[in-house]
C-alpha cells in the first residue's frame, strides 16, 4: 500500500459510477484535512474521480496502480 489514508474504502466490487459515489460520500463524511482512499476496478474512475476532486476543490494526493485495480487518494480541503 502506498500513501497512507485516514479512511480506506474498497469499491472494487462496484461498477460505474459506484467508486466515484464512494469517494464523494467518503469525503463528505471526513473532517477537513483527512485523506480518503478508494480502491476501484472501474476504468471510468481513472478520469471521473480526478475530475470530481478538481470540480469539488479537494486535493488529489495519489493515483496508484495496483494489480488489477487503482487506488485513488484525496484530501478533504474544505
Amino acid at each position: 500500500m502506498g500513501v497512507e489514508a485516514t479512511k480506506e474504502i474498497d469499491a472494487r466490487g462496484s461498477f460505474c459510477p459506484g467508486p466515484l459515489m464512494e469517494m464523494i460520500r467518503g469525503i463528505r463524511e471526513a473532517n477537513v484535512g483527512d485523506t480518503v482512499a478508494v480502491l476501484s476496478k472501474d476504468p471510468g474512475s481513472r478520469t471521473d474521480i480526478p475530475a470530481w476532486i478538481e470540480k469539488a476543490k479537494h486535493e488529489l494526493v495519489a493515483v496508484e496502480d495496483e494489480a488489477g485495480y487503482t487506488r485513488f487518494v484525496a484530501r478533504k480541503a474544505r
Binding site: C16, P17, L20, M21, I24, D48, A51, W52, K55, A56
Partner: peptide
C-alpha cells in the same frame, strides 16, 4: 441513472 449520477456528482 448512470448519467444522472454523473451530472449530480459534477454539481
Amino acid at each position: 441513472a448512470t448519467m444522472v449520477s454523473g451530472a449530480a456528482a459534477m454539481g
